[in-house]
Computed example of a mutant assay.
Amino acid sequence: MINIYFFLMIIAEFIASTSQMLLKQSAGRKYSSFIREYLNGLVIGGYGLLVLSMIISIFCYDGLGYMGVVVMEPVGYIIVMFMSRFFFKEKVTARKLTGMVFIIAGIAVFYALG
């Protein structure tokens, strides 16, 4: 049976990755003033989602423990890579794939030894 905390942590990673996509989209736009650059819907929404993902992650400490949450955080890098490809048409390079393999291997080793 899948641990509910594990499921929530994956959701938190998707939320954090979505937050990064919103912030990246905002960074690619031109704004009429310095204030508008930081006070717009994309930035406010991005940081709001980031706070939500942090709250969920903190809640997950209870069920996964400190090391479980720390190991699950890198899953966000994998999610961001795929979301960047989908939303921004960024290339998935051999270097990025190698990094993803190391992340997955590290998670597998952690759970195999734990």
Rank of each mutant, 00 (worst) to 15 (best):
R29P: 00
M81H: 00
M9W: 01
V51T: 07
M54E: 08
V43Y: 10
F7N: 06
E13H: 07
M100I: 10
V80M: 06
I35H: 14
A105P: 10
G114R: 14
N3A: 01
V101L: 15
F102N: 09
F86D: 12
S33H: 07
M54N: 12
I103P: 10
G28E: 06
G45A: 07
M1N: 14
T18C: 11
Y5F: 06
V101S: 14
N40F: 06
I56E: 02
L42E: 13
L50M: 13
G28H: 00
E37I: 08
S32Y: 01
I55C: 05
V109M: 12
R85L: 13
Y47C: 01
G63H: 07
Y66T: 10
V70S: 09
M1I: 08
V92A: 11
F86R: 15
R36E: 15
V71W: 00
G46Y: 03
Q20R: 11
F59W: 15
S57F: 07
N40Q: 07
V51I: 10
A94G: 14
A108R: 07
L49C: 05
M100K: 10
E73V: 05
N40K: 08
V71F: 01
A108I: 12
F86E: 13
M81N: 04
I35W: 15
V69K: 00
S53E: 01
F34K: 15
S33K: 09
S26A: 15
S26I: 04
T93L: 11
E73Q: 05
A108Y: 12
I78L: 07
G68E: 01
K96Q: 14
M67I: 00
S57C: 08
I15T: 04
V51Y: 07
A94V: 14
A112D: 10
M83I: 04
F87Q: 11
V75D: 01
G68R: 02
R95E: 12
L64P: 04
M21H: 09
Q20L: 08
T98R: 12
K91H: 13
L97T: 11
A27I: 00
Y38M: 13
G41F: 13
